[in-house]
Design a protein around this nucleic acid. Structure first.
Lengths: 338, 338
DNA sequence: GGTTAGCACTCAACGGTTGAGAGTGCTAAC
DNA sequence: GTTAGCACTCTCAACCGTTGAGTGCTAACC
């Protein structure tokens, strides 16, 4: 049964079918292949090969007189080949991203947007949790009308701020003096410790309890936010561009999964490889049975790593998506790593 | 022709039809009204009244044997009545909003999200441009590894920050000294002036040109952002919840309009009233011919005003949408006004 | 042996037809 | 002014044949 093993020609044909299907989203017929891809072979020959490929499990027919559609196994093969080779660089995607990053804290959001705009798919970006964030600086910036901006900077460079009320009698220098004092005592402490210590201080200090309470609240919020992994979604409605979601109900189901952060997290819980492509049922989520998720990981100092990813129909130009993810992931590593 | 003028019963029936249609999105038949709303009248009587209402232009029939559907004129009547009366307070919507506001600058975004989540429609929030913003404080907050957070606060309480690189030899006190010096010279200046002045300084100071450049860039960005009206959209995919958008093409068209900020701005360019409801063609935008836009304005100090709004199908529970908008608008006025 | 032309076969998609159901308008009686 | 009754209209879904794309198989060809 020699004809029932993969040879070079079968592979070429399979690849042609996948490429065509990725473009058109329509079952591919033997005649199409014979005319567009393998002009030296007749459609009858292609038919024979396709028949073999079907028997091998790489193709499927929606019904007997339709063309062939690649099976999950086919995508797997295609993708594994892609992952084995070297990815093309993608400086464009990278430029697209760096254009818009202003501020440390919204890097994640910008990354998600950049990926989704560039690939035209839905993007998901995860930032890993960071326990034991330590306070590096704590500063009060004067604002008009008895307000002040409280800024906390951690040793990892995370920034969070909030507006609090202070006594109108405190001018810039006074606020700086307070900031210095607070920084001196709190520097190097973890956010949890800061919260505990503030309880003690506020009894001592009395008057400025408002300020301390503001700090405690901000520290608490910051601790909470950084202690859980954060995921952001970008370009969720890109999904509507693809015919596999021309049914509104399907589109809605897809969009509601995107709002459940826990489910999204699960998309990333794979083996710790640089790249991963999970196709349809491989991720064990019935709602996403006809999607693929492509992810790449990036470093965030100290061996932690986050993920960038794209969700879309199984039919997806995996090559270009992977290289875009790789570019943005690289940029993120640089920005967030130490 | 006495029967061809509006009387109380006709109004009751019209209202019932609108209410039912808002709920179900299906043409309303005479029998439905007779059973659910006007149980003392038979369907035949209702039919006569409906026939009159149609002649008066308040109802339309999609086809001869379907029920009636409210016309634009009917919505107008309904809405005008609503606008004339007193709006019910809506403390819930308000609570929903204040829960999530942390920081002066993302008030707009939070407002859009709160409105959309609360009403289940797409929300649009506009913040008016503010020319001549004047610098109130300018401060450098030390960060690890030769970075610093540059914070600019304006007299209106707008905050913007960015991370810049500074010489590693500068400690907190040195940065504060620089901040003081800069604040002293730049306080009260407009953002434009700041940019101009920095050109002059940077020649004088030489060494710290990096810092000055950072400030100039941030000021420029801030000026740019505040000089144009800003609009934010929240919950854009809520539109998929409504059957009038079960056609994906329609939904896509809707979503792409939302991405063109200029078009969105146009939605707000109405008479300067506290509330406005524009129904379908009234806003002269063919893409939105079968939508309604409900807007409320809020004060932002100095007589400027911004808008909060909701976009959805013409069939919309105007009453509750209006009171939600009014609640959030009020909250915004408080937060952003002086 | 592999390759190809030819032909019978299958099945989705399209367009027209039909019957049921919903809802109306009109008329006549109350 | 209100209501029952009835004829009428129109949509919607189900049910055809017909068409066309695409296959599998066979027999001939190189």
């Amino acid at each position: 049964m020699a004809s029932h093993e993969m040879d070079a020609r079968k592979e070429r044909i399979l690849r042609a079918i996948i490429d065509d299907y990725i473009q058109t989203a329509m079952p591919v017929g033997s005649r199409t292949i014979s005319r567009k891809y393998e002009t030296s072979l007749s459609s009858a020959t292609i038919r024979n090969e396709m028949s073999d490929l079907e028997e091998l499990g790489y193709l499927a027919q929606p019904h007997v007189s339709a063309g062939r559609v690649p099976s999950l196994k086919a995508y797997r093969l295609y993708v594994d080949e892609l992952l084995g080779g070297t990815l093309p660089q993608n400086p464009q995607a990278r430029a697209f991203f760096s254009q818009r990053v202003r501020q440390m804290e919204d890097v994640i959001t910008s990354a998600a947007q950049a990926i989704s705009e560039f690939t035209r798919y839905t993007a998901v970006v995860m930032m890993p949790k960071q326990l034991d964030l330590r306070v590096s600086t704590l500063q009060l910036v004067p604002m008009p009308r008895g307000a002040a901006l409280l800024v906390i900077v951690t040793d990892t460079g995370a920034i969070r701020d909030t507006v609090i009320h202070v006594s109108e009698s405190l001018d810039g220098d006074a606020l700086y003096a307070i900031s210095r004092m607070l920084t001196e005592r709190l520097q190097g402490r973890t956010l949890q410790e800061v919260q505990e210590m503030l309880g003690a201080y506020s009894r001592q200090m009395g008057g400025d309890a408002q300020v301390l309470q503001g700090i405690a609240e901000l520290a608490a919020q910051m601790a909470r936010q950084s202690a859980t992994d954060t995921v952001t979604v970008g370009g969720s409605h890109n999904i509507l561009n693809y015919p596999e979601y021309s049914d509104v109900e399907k589109a809605r189901a897809f969009l509601s999964v995107l709002e459940e952060k826990e489910k999204l997290m699960a998309l990333f819980s794979g083996p710790d490889e640089a790249f991963s492509v999970r196709i349809g049922p491989e991720m064990g989520m019935p709602e996403m049975a006809d999607c693929s998720v492509v992810t790449a990981s990036y470093q965030v100092g100290r061996g932690h790593h986050g993920y960038v990813g794209v969700i879309g129909p199984t039919r997806m130009p995996y090559g270009s998506v992977l290289s875009a993810l790789s570019a943005i992931g690289g940029a993120l590593s640089e920005m967030l790593g130490e």
